[in-house]
């Protein structure tokens, strides 16, 4: 027993333990082609994507309120590494974007990006029609608004169309003579926020019939349960285009909104009398009219009569006839 506690023995054990402690386990070297961080800068900071080294994925949860249609991430790589692909923006609806990192040691690692778009669903349209009453819209009308819980004020993120009875989509025109379509948010009587996507035009080339409204906002889609009825209407506004022409020459009258259809008369009102004009051609947007040779000089306001409607006229600007 004495022998075991002798200074020599103690020293032996200390050295043995010290030698045992100094033994180090070599960890496998870290990959030099790693994505260290993946961040999307925003107005109020950044959204951080989760980089998972076990399955080489990047997962990004993207809240709807940023209203991003693309992301432009800031990617931090291992020292000396670079991305094989050019740094480009990514559509928020695209999943499976691959980032290939090439390390300083020429090793390569590929990461796959998954974007989880956090939208408020379902998308619900406020129906213009009901089971008992069908809304009637004029073909070409450019004051159409669609209400829904879009949860965005960015009109570029919304798509809207009319779906005919054959199932064909006819997109609304979102940039009319009154400017581009916009979105206005308002609080309803029920306290809920509603978004009105307005200044849309019904394509003037559509035919009368029943159409459903279809909208989409990024990954969400909705279609109305009840259709609206499209009918021919009375043109009420025209593209400002005063011209000066001579007798026998032509001018063009172009509707700014409601489609032109079935023009039965075109005339100037001169001294309280109708001066009939010759209709050379017409489509849903415009009519080309010829002025008779015996038209008096002066500025005359033209009128057209479409179907059974009252006459339509620009009202305040006219066609100047010179000799």
């Amino acid at each position: 027993m004495k022998k075991l506690t002798s200074p020599t023995t103690v020293l032996f054990f200390i050295l043995l333990i010290a030698a045992g402690c100094s033994k180090t386990e070599e960890l496998p070297p870290l990959n030099q082609s790693r994505i260290l961080s993946f961040k999307v800068p925003t107005a109020d900071g950044e959204i951080i994507g989760a980089v998972d080294e076990s399955d080489k994925t990047i997962t990004l949860y993207l809240p709807f309120y940023y209203q991003f249609s693309v992301i432009d991430p800031e990617i931090k790589l291992s020292d000396g590494a670079s991305l094989l692909e050019e740094s480009v923006t990514v559509d928020v609806l695209d999943n499976g974007t691959i980032y290939t990192v090439v390390g300083a040691d020429h090793s390569k690692t590929s990461y796959t990006l998954t974007i989880h778009l956090q939208q408020v669903s379902p998308l619900i349209i406020t129906e213009p029609s009901t089971a008992d009453q069908t809304a009637i819209w004029s073909i070409g009308d450019n004051r159409i608004s669609i209400k829904a819980n879009f949860h965005t004020t960015d009109p570029t993120l919304i798509k809207a169309s009319l779906v005919d009875e054959s199932g064909h989509d006819h997109p609304f025109i979102a940039n009319t003579g009154y400017g581009p379509a916009g979105v206005v948010a308002s609080i309803g009587a029920d306290g809920k926020k509603t978004y009105s996507y307005g200044s849309l035009q019904i394509p003037p080339e559509l035919l009368p019939g029943m159409y459903h409204i279809k909208v989409s906002h990024l990954a969400l889609n909705a279609t109305t349960t009840y259709p609206v009825q499209l009918v021919w209407g009375r043109p009420a506004s025209f593209v400002y285009a005063p011209v000066t022409i001579g007798p026998g020459e032509t001018f063009t009258l172009e509707s700014a909104s409601t489609a032109i259809h079935d023009i039965r008369e075109a005339y100037f009102t001169i001294g309280g009398e109708k001066k009939m004009l010759e209709i050379l051609s017409q489509d849903t947007k415009k009519v080309i009219i010829r002025v008779p040779d015996d038209t008096p000089t002066g500025t005359h306001i033209p009128s057209i009569v479409c179907g059974e409607f009252e006459p339509s006229t620009p009202g305040w600007w006219g066609i100047t006839i010179t000799k």
Binding site: D72, S82, L84, E86, S87, T100, V102, H106
Partner: peptide
């Protein structure tokens, strides 16, 4: 075979 650096905006 060297990778082209990504285009930093």
């Amino acid at each position: 075979d060297d990778p082209q650096p990504d285009r930093d905006p």
